[in-house]
């Protein structure tokens, strides 16, 4: 078993008086794909935003590569290799595709150029339109740009928040193919998804969240095989939980 690269214990996130995350613990081992699944409002995104440094946790501890990073701001974590692909893609629509990718390499310095060229080779559609505003891309292309932009930063752990949201089924397949490639390249991935079945099929290990707590966890194939879990927490057919 490989070492733990990202550890979260007893994480708490509060918005005013509302506690959105209530003592969540999980870990990701080097090279694993770990997924946090659960309905809308279960606290998945809050967990991810606390880990990436966008939100200040109200309590708990986050370790990355063996060091405590609980209250380290986002920009320092990106430099250290903990990179997030945020919910809703958050591409910079008025900047060009090239500029978006260069923003991905904010801390990468001279390595960025090589990484950007590698992304153009992997995603030819981005290369063709590198000089155009990123807002001119379709939703699926924007998601590819968001992923490519995060990869330019050279992540050791990639946090992905709902990468399949709002995309057509064919594009979702393509997104999951890319996620699989990223994992195979050795990058650890923490994937947050409402599309539970799909995420568990791709993952090594899964955690089921409900109202801010982990209610089930285990190897992804076991969670997937347990119809009761799917039915109880992830919606009857489990394909896409819209709630």
């Amino acid at each position: 078993m490989s070492e733990s690269i990202l550890g979260v214990s007893d994480l708490r996130v509060r918005y005013g008086r509302v506690e959105a995350v209530r003592g969540v613990s999980f870990e990701a081992r080097r090279g694993q794909l770990v997924t946090l699944v659960g309905a809308n409002g279960a606290g998945k995104s809050s967990v991810l935003n606390a880990v990436s440094g966008l939100l200040r946790p109200a309590g708990g501890r986050i370790t990355f590569e063996g060091q405590d990073v609980t209250r380290v701001p986002a920009h320092k974590l990106v430099r250290r290799g903990l990179v997030q692909v945020p919910e809703g893609r958050q591409i910079l629509a008025t900047l060009t595709i090239e500029e978006n990718l260069r923003m991905g390499g904010w801390h990468a310095g001279g390595r960025a150029r090589e990484a950007i060229d590698a992304m153009y080779a992997r995603f030819p559609v981005l290369a063709e339109r590198r000089g155009l505003p990123a807002g001119s891309l379709s939703g699926g292309e924007q998601q590819m740009l968001a992923i490519a932009r995060a990869l330019v930063a050279g992540p050791t752990v990639m946090l992905m928040d709902e990468p399949s949201m709002g995309l057509a089924p064919k594009i979702v397949d393509e997104v999951f193919r890319v996620i699989e490639e990223i994992r195979r390249s050795g990058t650890t991935v923490v994937l947050v998804e409402q599309n539970a079945r799909r995420a568990l099929r791709a993952a090594d290990h899964g955690y089921v969240l409900q109202t801010g707590e982990v209610v089930q966890s285990g190897p992804a194939d076991e969670l997937l095989a347990d119809e009761r879990i799917i039915a109880a927490y992830l919606g009857g057919d489990g394909a896409v939980d819209q709630r």
């Binding site: 966008l54 974590l77 990106v78 591409i91 910079l92 900047l95 991905g104 930063a153």
Partner: peptide
């Protein structure tokens, strides 16, 4: 320009 358009995206990308 990244901050002008979307401060959250800028933070996610590692901008101080």
């Amino acid at each position: 320009r990244a901050i002008a358009e979307n401060p959250t995206a800028a933070r996610v990308l590692g901008v101080n």
